[in-house]
Design a protein around this nucleic acid. Structure first.
Lengths: 148, 148
DNA sequence: TGACAAAGGATAATTATTATTATTCAATAG
DNA sequence: CTATTGAATAATAATAATTATCCTTTGTCA
């Protein structure tokens, strides 16, 4: 079970992880991370930029992108939009799920019958109309693993 | 249980659905759909364009994009990369899942405890190193539903 | 404190996608 | 079977998202 951490605690943890990783604890990085840690809305780089600008008006969008990349590479941050690079299409309208290589972005089908049924135990937020459920199994494919 | 259809059958079905929907059965559309229906690799628009060009060298990339949009709007095709518009980030590294509005792309957290455990009944393809599993519950949020 | 590597800011370049417009084609009314 | 018309296509311009480059500034550690 996860323990709830205050924002202050999570900032301290972040600073510590940066030290461990040899990443400089710059003011910009702290503010960028704070913007991310303060919300559950899963913001875009642009939205983070807007938020950070309130505190550091001179920040550049490139710095935000660069640090997002640095943080995700270091495992300090995660990408919700795993397949966001480009539109990926599916002519198979039947229920099924997907296996995705996070390196090369290859997508393989996983028949629905191979996955235990996914069910929500709690009701959804008021008025949300659920249409379907898509499971992504994320990892590294054999080829990419072989190539280090 | 889904019945397996031959490519020919799926092309016939597609032509019929186009007629029903009032969509012109152009040569370009047939070839674009064939490219999609012939693979399970979930290609990008660019990849489809390259494939279609073999048969119709004069095809334009815009036509491919436009028809992909037409097909997905009509429900003839599905987008695997639901959140591909822009990078979306998550500072919460604990296990959890997401509820996504397919209209406005709002993302809400779903604690792991609210979802039945997801398990694969069959082994993964040789050498695939599974890292994690992400469930996307897709639908329309209250606000977007209210706005038609 | 000072040297040096790392990071930031400005901006150019690239990639992915959408919009615009003139031309061509598919559907169907006669 | 042909003429008409609205939809679809091709070419191209425009925009949005992201990455790379280059030079300046700032942390870090001796």
């Amino acid at each position: 079970m996860d323990v709830e951490h205050s924002l202050q605690q999570r900032m301290d943890l972040f600073r510590q992880r940066c030290l461990e990783l040899g990443l400089a604890c710059t003011h910009q990085r702290m503010v960028i991370y704070k913007a991310l840690a303060s919300t559950t809305a899963h913001p875009t780089p642009e939205a983070i930029y807007e938020q950070v600008k309130r505190e550091i008006p001179a920040i550049s969008l490139g710095t935000v992108y660069k640090n997002i990349r640095t943080f995700t590479d270091a495992g300090l941050l995660r990408e919700v939009s795993v397949l966001h690079d480009s539109l990926r299409l599916d002519a198979n309208l039947g229920d099924h799920h997907h296996l995705v290589c996070v390196r090369c972005k290859a997508i393989f089908d996983v028949p629905e019958t191979e996955v235990t049924p996914v069910q929500l135990r709690e009701p959804l937020p008021d008025g949300f109309r659920l249409e379907r459920c898509s499971v992504l199994f994320l990892g590294v494919c054999a080829q990419c693993a072989a190539a280090q």
